[in-house]
Write a protein that binds this DNA or RNA. Sequence first.
DNA 1: AAGAAAAGTGTGTACGAACACACTTTTAAC
DNA 2: GTTAAAAGTGTGTTCGTACACACTTTTCTT
Lengths: 356, 356
Amino acid sequence: MDRLKKTTIQDIADYTDISIGTIDRVIHNRGKVSRIKKEKIEEAIRVLDFNPNLLARTLVLGKQYVICSLLPEAMTPEHYWSLPKRGVEQGAQNYRDFGIELDSRTYSLFDESSFVENAKAILERNPEGVILAPLFERESTWFIRQLEKRKIPYVFIDARISGHKNLSYIGPDVKASGYIAGKLLDPLLADGDAILIVNMVKGIGNSAHTGTIERGFRDFFKTAEGKPRRKIGAITIPSMDEREVVRELTKYYLRNPGTGGVFVTNSNAHLISKYHTDHELDIRVIGFDLVQGNIAEMKKGTIDFIISQRPIYQGTQAVRSLFDFFVNKKMPTSIQYVPLDIIIKESMDFYIRCQG
Amino acid sequence: MDRLKKTTIQDIADYTDISIGTIDRVIHNRGKVSRIKKEKIEEAIRVLDFNPNLLARTLVLGKQYVICSLLPEAMTPEHYWSLPKRGVEQGAQNYRDFGIELDSRTYSLFDESSFVENAKAILERNPEGVILAPLFERESTWFIRQLEKRKIPYVFIDARISGHKNLSYIGPDVKASGYIAGKLLDPLLADGDAILIVNMVKGIGNSAHTGTIERGFRDFFKTAEGKPRRKIGAITIPSMDEREVVRELTKYYLRNPGTGGVFVTNSNAHLISKYHTDHELDIRVIGFDLVQGNIAEMKKGTIDFIISQRPIYQGTQAVRSLFDFFVNKKMPTSIQYVPLDIIIKESMDFYIRCQG
DNA sequence: AAGAAAAGTGTGTACGAACACACTTTTAAC
DNA sequence: GTTAAAAGTGTGTTCGTACACACTTTTCTT
């Protein structure tokens, strides 16, 4: 059969009657080549549509790219932070044969020193690139200064610190996520219903982050045209302990009857919806992230909407961006907002199964 | 530096003092190898964690895999069918160096014979795999019979025909998409509001398909607990000509005042929302697919929800499934439902930018 | 016990690109 | 007009794997 293979350097050589050595020099713009031959070769490359075979190139160069990732630790396998981690690992796996080697590290959200320790170990290792979720602002700032000093490129995922020379931020538009939550929750409520915003702070909470979400959420209700203003309350629960949650919620609801909907600004909506079930309250709930707890509650119908920020994709995309930067010298887009997936009970399964 | 490379066959050879030829035979379970050496090698593979380098393997085998895709033609570049096509092409591009070669063909939705012609050309070409959107049921049935006779594996994308030996279906759960549309539309409406379902049939419409969507949609309103029943009307517009649309809609609305929401079962919601704007009607609209027309209308706020079935991803995933089947002999999951993305004005941009 | 068949093993070449090296031709210097 | 530097060019080896081929050893057969 024809089965026409791709054109190779040898094809260019045959076509132009020039050795592959010279062609190689033209391709890499290295060494001396006469103008005549150079033009002839460049034409042949166009005419025969030559594209260097990345496989062969990778193989012969034999370069290894070490990527270190530093993400928060998932306290349980069902915890949110296990997802970006899985994404990063999956991404590294995809590019394994291309020389990508991953050193995946985690730090405790309750312990800045664990961050610093791992950061130091990463600097020690002198990797080709770093993937960082910068939840500790002070320590992260210090870390990326060190990276910049050593000219090690890094990308942020899931969160970011402004004003630094990171290659890219891959994560949600946080403010938009709050706004969207507001827009989705509102039509589920009756006219007079009030709203409660629940911030849960576990470990060292990223307060700037939750603040932005809340602002986005309130923005919706400010800008909504023609809608009656709603009463919006907010509480901050400084723990994830169940008893603590129960106590704080009870305190609030006793003082604020008429709450029709709750917006949970992190991945713990399931704690709130469980409370509602236990106390036979008919209150709408919207929260973030397809973690195990939320999945179960959503299935029961006690959570109405989950907004997901493609945590796995964030990880794979981070690796892909670094790889493209290493191999193709392609600067990634500096802000890569992930889609904010709006998920309901009926569409949940599709998201769980599609690990894209 | 350490920069420890991956273990290679040669490493296994050094470790076991056996030649790479024998090791190769163990890996491929071919030829004769003594039990002693075989076990020694298998142990070394485990201990040293050997994984064959896919790049080197691909390079030496030099096999080309021709994939033919047969999708409906996009009449304009903004048309829905340009998206799965782009996905397929992008996917093929990704695996180009691995020997994937794409022959991308389209057929007219108005002309069965164009389907048959292209199908014949594909059979002629005798490709390693086929990607098919089987919108013409009769002709598709004939085609896949031919493929089965020739033992050419094929995957369906976007639509499917049951009872055949396709490798995989990659597309939406059509019924669920209707149900979800119902669930999203309902809370946007006032209590007494009625609903209109618009089916537009262009070319040879896949009537089974739209029927299923409509059934899913109505199912929501049947099973919705505690909700007052809504009046649900439906019209079928046998054309996409604007004047035709205007006439049919006017006819309906004149007879059915009190319609608060419209569900458009294909990608032409923008035609309906434009009508509403022109006639100063305040009616909610939900439809499918992020095509140019819908994007513009959504931006104006005249469409409330778009449900997207990841058309680009469908294409890339189809190629990936075939590639995995060719190279890793991995049978794909037989039904790969894509996530049904629920998109609103505020989340639209993220989806447009993220071509994942 | 000889010889053939079967079982078991190692070597060499190929894939496509990169690069070191060696080699030839041109140019410049005096 | 000789020589050296600069410019220009081709060859050979390498990466990790697959496979054809050649080769050695063991096992049957009669």
